[in-house]
Structures are given as C-alpha cells and as structure tokens.
Design a protein around this nucleic acid. Structure first.
Length: 271
DNA sequence: ACTGGCTCCTGAGGGC
DNA sequence: TGCCCTCAGGAGCCAG
C-alpha cells in the first residue's frame, strides 16, 4: 500500500531509468483502472522525451514537453522496470517502452490506481489542485495544522489523513506519527493544543523521513522499481501490533476502527 | 463548510 | 486439501 515514502522510494529508483529517455511506444494491456487509461495515451507519449519525474503527495508526475502523465498506485499498484521482451504478468495494465531497451510496467491487481494524461500543468489538474502542503514543505508546520483544525470535530487521525490538509499520509504513518506524538487518534482535531500540533507535525516529518531512508514499508507486496523491498516495517511501533505491549509503557496496544480504517494505539499513553 | 459512509477491486488468510 | 467468507485500504464522490 504505497504511501508517501513508498512513492518517493519509487520515484528515486525510477528517475535514472526514465529521465532523458525517449518513449518508443506504449502498450495498454488492460485499460481498466479507477478511471480508464485514456485511449489517446500511446499517441501522446510516442517519441516524447521524459523530462522529469516528480512526486506530489502519492501522485507521480511524468513530465513531457507538452504535458504530463499523472500516475497513482492506489493500494496495490507497482511500477517495474523490466528488460524488453520479458513476459507480461497478470494484472499488467500498461507498458511504456523506452529507447534504452527497458520497459516501464504498471501492474495493479486491485485497480485502485490511475494513469491520466494532462495536457497542461499537472499541479493544476482537478485531482491535484486542492491538495494540502507536502509534509516536507516549509508551509507544513504545527501552527498550520492548528489553524486548519479550528472548529473541526472529526478525529485527529481522519484530519491528518485528509489530503486537503496534508498530502501523502496514509493509515500506517498516521498511526505511527500519532503514537510518536502521544496523541489519542480518537480525539477531535479541534480539541488539540497548538503545542501538541507542533509535536505532531514534527512526528509526521520524522516518521516519513525515516521511512524514506529505509526504502518504505513492505507489509505484503511493496517493491521498488527493480524489486527491492523496503525495511521500515521493522521499525513500526504500533501499526499491525494490536495486543502487543506498547513500546513506551508496555500496556497492551488497542485497536479500533476510525473512518473505516484499522487504528492501533496505546490507550494508556496516547491522550 | 464539514462529516461520515459508500464504492471500486483482488488476494491473503482464517475457519471448518 | 479445498472452499467460503471476511478483510485490507486510497480517495473521489455524495448525501445530510
């Protein structure tokens, strides 16, 4: 389930294979994703040079001279670099053949991902225009979170997982950051002090930074573009550990569902 | 302006 | 061994 660190890991891994390369051809093996792969995509990409690979939240943006490909991996998507001629796999949706002889392949069993063509600036695309700041951007601060939380009755966990507030934070890292900041995930976002939001912002940045450093979290199937797993799962403190002792106070970790998502926390030391 | 619930999809894993 | 059931979740969308 790619969140920001997994998408950033992929971006870094893919960059040297893609940037500066010319696209020879594009094969759409299965257009069925969250939205259908645009029918004109192969023609748009044909002969174009990839000028950059950018990440915005959990979106990857492949910049060409006259537009960009917007990619999202949903929760089961992966991008793999393979040699031309390698056999296709089940759930391969798209293959982009590069002039290097390598092929960029999108595989997505659950089809929650998407591939879109954007003729203009992708940051102004409706899917991206309303996104909140990147966690690593200067604009993302405790003060910012505190201000945005005024009057909010939703839980703080739903609040930090809202991409309009801050981008890229999924379930795993929301759980981990709330644990690190010792905040009860069930607490209403509007009922948390400015000081505690400073701690939360710092915790989010630190958890994401460490996860990127570890190459992301591989729970079941995350791999980078050449098949390497991430290692941050070894450092998860609470996610997937309900019933185990809290790393801080040793009382058993609790699990509840918030906003349809598994939420693990320590009811004793997260307040 | 917010909020919670629904929806898409397939593979893994548990129970029997 | 095999079948059936439940669950996992990103995020757009919509009704209230």
């Amino acid at each position: 389930m790619p969140e920001l660190p997994e998408v950033e890991t992929l971006r870094r891994c893919l960059e040297p294979y893609l940037v500066g390369r010319r696209i020879e051809s594009t094969r759409v093996r299965n257009p069925k994703l969250r939205w259908p792969v645009p029918i004109e995509l192969p023609a748009r990409l044909q002969g174009r040079v990839i000028q950059g690979l950018e990440r915005r939240g959990k979106y990857l943006l492949m910049h060409l001279a006259d537009g960009a490909v917007i990619l999202h991996l949903g929760m089961s998507g992966c991008l793999l670099v393979r040699p031309e001629g390698a056999p296709a796999a089940t759930h391969d949706h798209l293959e982009i053949v590069l002039d290097s002889g390598k092929v960029l392949c999108l595989n997505d069993p659950r089809r929650f991902g998407c591939v879109l063509w954007c003729p203009g600036d992708p940051l102004e695309h409706p899917l991206l225009a309303g996104l909140g700041p990147e966690p690593f951007a200067p604009a993302f601060t405790g003060d910012y979170l505190y201000q945005r939380a005024r009057g909010r009755k939703a839980t703080v966990k739903a609040f930090i997982m809202d991409s309009r507030i801050v981008t890229g934070v999924g379930n795993i890292y929301a759980n981990e950051a709330l644990f690190a900041a010792a905040i009860d995930p069930r607490r209403a976002a509007g009922r948390i002090s400015r000081k505690r939001y400073h701690a939360l912002a710092a915790a989010l940045v630190e958890v994401l930074r460490q996860a990127i450093q570890q190459g992301g979290t591989t729970l079941r199937d995350f791999r980078d573009a050449v098949g390497n797993p991430g290692w941050f799962q070894l450092q998860l403190k609470v996610y997937g550990r309900a019933g185990e002792p809290c790393p801080r106070c040793l009382r058993p970790l609790s699990e509840v569902r918030l906003a349809q998502r598994a939420t693990t926390f320590c009811a004793a030391c997260q307040r």
